[in-house]
Design a protein around this nucleic acid. Structure first.
Length: 690
RNA sequence: GGCAGGGUAGCUCAGUGGUUAGAGCAGCGGCUUCAUAAGCCGCGUGUCGCGGGUUCGACCCCCGCCCCUGCUACCA
C-alpha cells in the first residue's frame, strides 16, 4: 500500500528551435506531463525537465535567411515554446536550452571522459561544400540526379525513385539547395565515438527487458546489434551553430551530441535554483550497468519513435563511457495521425498548439490523448468526430454531470455530517485505485480512462436510481436528498482525483466546489463529509463541432480563392491614384524579376508597428526574408502557406530588424486598405511573372 | 529488399488456448426531466485480413500470402 516514495527524474524530448509546437509534439508532452503529475500526486519525488534543442545546421541556415543571429532566433522560439506548453498545462520543473553555459560545461565533462576512455577517433570525411554559403552540406541540402536510375531532384544520400543509396559525391549534377550553386567535394577531419567498444554493454542494456519496450529491443537487435556498430560522427566542421570542441578548434559538437546532455544541463539549472544536489539526481554510477537500488533515482526518458537510436544506443553509450547513471526506462510512443492520415498542412490537420488554443480548451486534448495512449509504440489516431463525442459524452455528460446534477440540492446545507451508507459504491471505486494507478504508472492511460469512465457510469446510475429530484418533493425526506447528493459528489470527487493527472484544472475546480482541495492520490480513498458546497459553476464547456472545423480551417494552407462576381466598379480608386501617363518599353518591364513565392513563415516584428517578417519560398530550398508593411491588416498565421508575388531582384535593403530581400506586391492605398496579390491556382513558387 | 508493428462491429479501439468475441461513440425503441438537449434501460450488427496447419477446441500458437504504417545510424 504505502511504498517508500520513489525518486524519479523525467525528461521529454527537447523540441527543436526551428519550429513551433504542434499537436503531434503534444502527444509526447501531454503523455509525459500526465505521468509526472501522477507520480507527484502519488507522493513520489519527481522532477520534470526539458529544454529547447537549439544547435545545428538548420538553425544556422534559417537565421542566415532571416538576417538575424541564431541567438535571436532561438530566443524567440524558446519564448513561443514556453508559452505554448504553458497553455496546455504542461508543467516543467525546469525548461532550459542546449545553448546554455551549463550545457557547454557538461558537454565538456562528457567529452573529456570519452577522450580518457580512448573512444574518440579521427577520420577524414568527404562532403559536398557550398562555396558561396561557405558551409558543408548535409545530405538533405543537396539535390541532384540519381547515379543509378537517373531520377532528378534526389537528395544526397538516397533515391526515392529506385531506393538506391549512395554518397553525395556520387550524385550527378549536384546543386546546393541553399544557394542553388554547384557544390564541390571537400574533405575535413571529423571526430567519431567508437561505440563498437561498448557493443557488449549495449547488447546487455538494450536486451535486458527492463529498459525498453520489446519491439524496440527487437528493432535494435535486428538493425544494429547484429553487426559491428559503426563509429558515430559527433563533430561538424565550422561554420556550425553549436559549441566548439575545446581540444579540437574549428570543430563543433554535432547537435545530437549536445542535445541529450541538455537533459543534464536542465537538471543542473534546476539544482542551482532549488539548492538540490546534481549528484543526487544524476549520480555517477559505480557500476557501468547502473545499479538501481531502492534509494537511488530512476531516470525516465519519454521520446517519439523517430529518435529511438539516439536514446537507446548513443546516449546510453555516452552515459556509460562517462560513468553517469543510465536511464531506468526509455518510453517510446508513436506518431499522431489525424483522420487516419499523416498530419497535412493542406488539409489543415497540421495544427499548431497555438491554433488549437485559439479555438479549444487544452483539457480536451489532454483527455483525448489520454484515452488513446497505451504503453505501445503504435501510432495514435485523432478522429475529429470522435474527439468531439468523447469530450462531450465522457467529460461533460458523465463526469462533470455528476456534480452539476446534484450540487445545487446541497448548496444550502453542505454535505452530510458523516458519509452515508452507499451500498459500497465508494469503497469499490476506492479499491480500483491501485489498478488505475498501475495503469498510469505503466503508461497505459487508455486502460485508466476506461476504468474511470466505468466508475462514472456506475455513479450516474446510482443517482438515477435514487432520484434525489423526486425525493426532494417530499419535505420529510430532506435528509435523504442530502445523503444521496453527498454520495454523488463524493463519487465525483473520487473521479476528479483519478483524473487529476490528466485534468488538473478539473481537480482544482472539484476542490473548490466541495471546499476540500485535492492534493494526493490517497484523497480517492476517503470520502469527505460536512463541508460546504459552493455554488456550482461550469467546469468544462461542451465542444461544438464548429470550433473544431474553425481550427482546421485556420490551420489550412490558404487555397487559391476563386472569386467571381459581376459588379459595377466605382471610379474612386482610379481617382485616388490616377493612371501614370508615361509609358515604358517591354525591355524596361522585363528588368523587373517578378516571381511566385510561398509564404512559409510569417511573424510579427515586435518593435515595429507596421512590419511583418515573411519567409518566402521560391521553390526548392531557396528562401527570401522579406519585411512587409502589412501588420494589422493580415494576421501572420493566415499568411503562412499562401502564394504571393514578389519582386525578386529588388536590391536587398538592410533594415533595423534584418535584411529585406524583396518586396511582396499588394494593391490599395495603404493603411487598412492593403490587398496582397495572389496568382491563380496552379502557379508554383519560383515561376516568373511575365 | 530487410526489419518492426498493425489489420476485431459504421467509427475509435479493448480482449483471452475453451461455454453464444467485448467497450465507447454513432443508429433504433422506451423511460426520466435533477443536470451543460445531460442521465437510465433495452436492441442490432461482426467470414475477429486471406489460405493452410497444430489442437478435443484458435480471434488468440505455427507456416505462407495480401494490405496499411513506420524504420532501415556518418539527415533532423
Amino acid at each position: 500500500m504505502s511504498q517508500p516514495p520513489r525518486k524519479i527524474l523525467v525528461t521529454a524530448a527537447l523540441p527543436y528551435a526551428n519550429g513551433h509546437i504542434h499537436i503531434g509534439h503534444l502527444v509526447e508532452y501531454i503523455q509525459t506531463d500526465i505521468w509526472v503529475r501522477f507520480q507527484k500526486l502519488k507522493g513520489n519525488r519527481c522532477v520534470f525537465l526539458c529544454a529547447d534543442d537549439t544547435h545545428g545546421t538548420a538553425i544556422m541556415i534559417r537565421a542566415r535567411q532571416e538576417g538575424r543571429s541564431e541567438e535571436a532566433l532561438i530566443a524567440d522560439m524558446r519564448e513561443a515554446h514556453i508559452r505554448d506548453f504553458d497553455g496546455f498545462d504542461i508543467e516543467f520543473d525546469n525548461y532550459g536550452s542546449t545553448n546554455s553555459a551549463a550545457n557547454r560545461a557538461l558537454c565538456g565533462d562528457v567529452w573529456s571522459a570519452l577522450r580518457k576512455s580512448g573512444l574518440i577517433v579521427e577520420q577524414d570525411v568527404t562532403q559536398l561544400f557550398d562555396v558561396q554559403e561557405g558551409t558543408f552540406l548535409a545530405d538533405r541540402f543537396v539535390k541532384g540526379i540519381c547515379p543509378k536510375c537517373g531520377a532528378v531532384d534526389q537528395y544526397g544520400d538516397n533515391c526515392e525513385k529506385c531506393g538506391a543509396t549512395y554518397s553525395p559525391g556520387d550524385l550527378k549534377d549536384p546543386v546546393s539547395t541553399l544557394s542553388g550553386t554547384k557544390p564541390e567535394l571537400r574533405s575535413a577531419k571529423h571526430l567519431f565515438v567508437r561505440i563498437e567498444d561498448l557493443h557488449g554493454f549495449l547488447e546487455e542494456w538494450t536486451q535486458s527487458g527492463e529498459h525498453l519496450q520489446p519491439e524496440v529491443a527487437n528493432y535494435l537487435k535486428g538493425h544494429f546489434l547484429g553487426e559491428p556498430l559503426r563509429d558515430w560522427d559527433v563533430s561538424r566542421p565550422a561554420p556550425y551553430f553549436g559549441f566548439e570542441i575545446p581540444d579540437s578548434p574549428g570543430n563543433f559538437w554535432y547537435v545530437w551530441f549536445d542535445a541529450p546532455i541538455g537533459y543534464m544541463a536542465s537538471l543542473r539549472e534546476w539544482c542551482e535554483r532549488t539548492g538540490e544536489q546534481f549528484d543526487d539526481w544524476w549520480p555517477r554510477s559505480i557500476s557501468p550497468s547502473a545499479g538501481e537500488g531502492s534509494a537511488s533515482v530512476e531516470i525516465h526518458h519519454f521520446i517519439g519513435k523517430d529518435i529511438t537510436y539516439f536514446h537507446t544506443l548513443f546516449w546510453p553509450a555516452m552515459l556509460n563511457a562517462a560513468r553517469f547513471q543510465l536511464p531506468a526506462r526509455v518510453h517510446i510512443h508513436g506518431f499522431l495521425t489525424v483522420g487516419g492520415e499523416k498530419m497535412s498542412k493542406s488539409k489543415g490537420t497540421f495544427v499548431r498548439g497555438r491554433t488549437y488554443l485559439d479555438h479549444l480548451d487544452p483539457s480536451f486534448l489532454r483527455y483525448y490523448f489520454a484515452s488513446k495512449l497505451t504503453a505501445k509504440l503504435d501510432d495514435i489516431d485523432m478522429n475529429l468526430d470522435e474527439f468531439v463525442s468523447k469530450i462531450n459524452s465522457d467529460l461533460v455528460g458523465k463526469v462533470v454531470n455528476l456534480a452539476s446534477r446534484t450540487a445545487k440540492f446541497v448548496q444550502e446545507t453542505g454535505l452530510s455530517d458523516s458519509y452515508p451508507v452507499d451500498g459500497g459504491l465508494f469503497a469499490r471505486a476506492a479499491a480500483e485505485g491501485d489498478a488505475i494507478a498501475a495503469a498510469y504508472d505503466g503508461c497505459d492511460y487508455n486502460a485508466a480512462m476506461r476504468s474511470i469512465m466505468a466508475l462514472a457510469d456506475r455513479a450516474n446510475k446510482f443517482i438515477d436510481d435514487l432520484a434525489p429530484w423526486t425525493l426532494r418533493k417530499d419535505p420529510n425526506r430532506a435528509a435523504d436528498v442530502r445523503n444521496v447528493c453527498t454520495i454523488a459528489l463524493n463519487l465525483f470527487r473520487q473521479l476528479a482525483v483519478y483524473l487529476a493527472p490528466v485534468l488538473p484544472r478539473l481537480a482544482k475546480q472539484a476542490g473548490e466546489l466541495l471546499n476540500s482541495p485535492i492534493q494526493s492520490w490517497a484523497d480517492a480513498q476517503q470520502p469527505i463529509a460536512g463541508t460546504a458546497v459552493s455554488p456550482f459553476q461550469h467546469m468544462l464547456k461542451r465542444v461544438e463541432p464548429e470550433q473544431v472545423s474553425k481550427m482546421i480551417a485556420a490551420s489550412q494552407e490558404a487555397p487559391a480563392t476563386a472569386a467571381s462576381a459581376t459588379t459595377v466598379d466605382g471610379p474612386a480608386a482610379l481617382a485616388a491614384e490616377p493612371l501614370v501617363a508615361e509609358t515604358i518599353s517591354i525591355d524596361e518591364f522585363s528588368k523587373m524579376d517578378l516571381r511566385v513565392a510561398r509564404v512559409v513563415a510569417a511573424e510579427d516584428v515586435k518593435e515595429s508597428n507596421k512590419l511583418l517578417r515573411l519567409t518566402l519560398s521560391l521553390g526548392g530550398d531557396v528562401n527570401r526574408n522579406v519585411f512587409a508593411g502589412i501588420k494589422g491588416v493580415y494576421q501572420p498565421e493566415t499568411l503562412v502557406g499562401r502564394l504571393v508575388i514578389v519582386v525578386a531582384n529588388l536590391a536587398p535593403r538592410k533594415m533595423k530588424f534584418g535584411m529585406s530581400e524583396g518586396m511582396v506586391l499588394a494593391a490599395g492605398p495603404g493603411g487598412k486598405d492593403i490587398y496582397i496579390l495572389s496568382p491563380d491556382s496552379g502557379a508554383v513558387p519560383g515561376q516568373r511573372v511575365h
